[in-house]
Design a binder for these strands. Structure first.
Lengths: 226, 226
DNA sequence: ACTTCAGGTAAATTCGAAAATAACATATAT
DNA sequence: ATATATGTTATTTTCGAATTTACCTGAAGT
């Protein structure tokens, strides 16, 4: 994230990952090397490196000698992902609230302000900047847990967050107004260092998103995340 | 894990991962492609696929255009890894105890029996089968959480467990007798479905291993995992 | 003495082609 | 008609070579 990686491999990695998360490469789709070669203008070896990386992160399936597929979606998987996001993000949130300094606080307020502005724009019907909005949403949630002092935890969370995001992107509608209020409440609890309230709000926020997605997909969920 | 992958890539992947976890490739070591090519009898491209996979799992560092390095170790990283193992494995344990059926129970008892036999052998001074012992230890802990009904959780846990194991393998001594008793107690709590006791025992088991490792490394730890 | 720049060497990155394997269609036998 | 065998095509896997980039050494300048 930090270095301006100009290598072909790194560029292709971010492109394909983006296309999977934003649904431009559909769940279950076969990823034929020669087709990808044209689409992303990279050689077979470079593409294979990329797909192996995405496979170990769980965005791609790589059955032996059968090529590569976009990881399929399912109600069970969504439920697991939501459960893991609750587990990891709540834990990180608690640590972050215990450790965050003033610098962390001001970054958090700034991230929320950016997100809040974007949410108002979206509520007025501006559908043009969906991806920017999703990025601000990510930056806000990241800002809350940034002070957790565990890079390993942040790395794990980042992958789970992206998987959760892919499910959200599969459905066309959003729960804008509700989510916006939940973000504001979460910011408030975080600034006041009320870990229990913040964790509870976050959990409800995630479950709310899960319910919205599974409803739109017409999936009946069994609540095993708890 | 399930398919008998006979491809060169898959073989090399398991070999290099093993060599990192068991310290045969030292922390921080430069992984020169040409040297690896001889050692593992594979081509550059195949090795790069493997190293990219290991990089995204966090066993290898891959700074842009600077090649590959075995991920370095540090007290902070060990502390984070232990904290994450506690978080993930305790959570999975709770779910598993809630969901496990008789089949799960009998697999767990069997796994503990195998481990227990091996531990007795090790206590008598048989140092020959350290790797087998470590595998049985892994299989026992996996058996406890196997019924958690979340493949995503098991996948995440597997990576963290291996990272924790690498630290254990860096030190020469083990806390055989104590760990053996802790395994027996954990089995007991699991069979009796006492989730709180099982989680508490597991947490102490992991922290005990952490303390043993950090002592042997002469590292002063700050307890941030909690 | 310290920094900056250039040249040469070693290494990583990227590519296209060769080999191995799977997928498919057709034909033959039960 | 179904199942098995066979040959053909498409795709993946693997490799070695070409390109690009970083690293090291020593000279020139401040």
């Amino acid at each position: 994230m930090n270095d301006a990686n100009t290598t072909v491999g790194s560029t292709v990695y971010h492109q394909i990952k983006h296309d999977i998360i934003f649904g431009e490469l559909a769940p279950g789709a076969k990823l034929k090397l020669n087709a990808l070669k044209e689409r992303y203008a990279a050689s077979l070896s470079t593409l294979r490196e990329t797909l192996n990386r995405l496979a170990s992160e769980g965005f791609v399936d790589a059955p032996a000698q059968r090529g590569f597929f976009v990881r399929d979606v399912s109600p069970e998987d969504l439920s697991e992902i939501a459960g893991l996001r609750i587990l990891l993000e709540c834990h990180a949130l608690e640590l972050s609230l215990a450790n965050g300094d003033t610098e962390w606080e001001s970054n958090l307020v700034a991230a929320h302000h950016k997100l809040s502005r974007m949410e108002k724009k979206m509520l007025l019907g501006d559908k043009s900047s969906k991806e920017t909005w999703k990025r601000y949403d990510w930056e806000f949630h990241l800002a809350t847990i940034q002070a957790c002092r565990s890079q390993n935890l942040l790395d794990l969370h980042s992958i789970i967050y992206d998987k959760y995001l892919r499910y959200q992107n599969l459905v066309l509608t959003h729960r804008g107004e509700i989510a916006s209020q939940e973000h504001a409440d979460l910011l408030d609890a975080a600034i006041f260092r009320d870990a229990d309230r913040a964790k509870d709000l976050l959990k409800k926020h995630i479950i709310g998103g899960l319910a919205h997605t599974s409803d739109a997909m017409d999936w009946k969920m069994v609540d095993t995340y708890a």
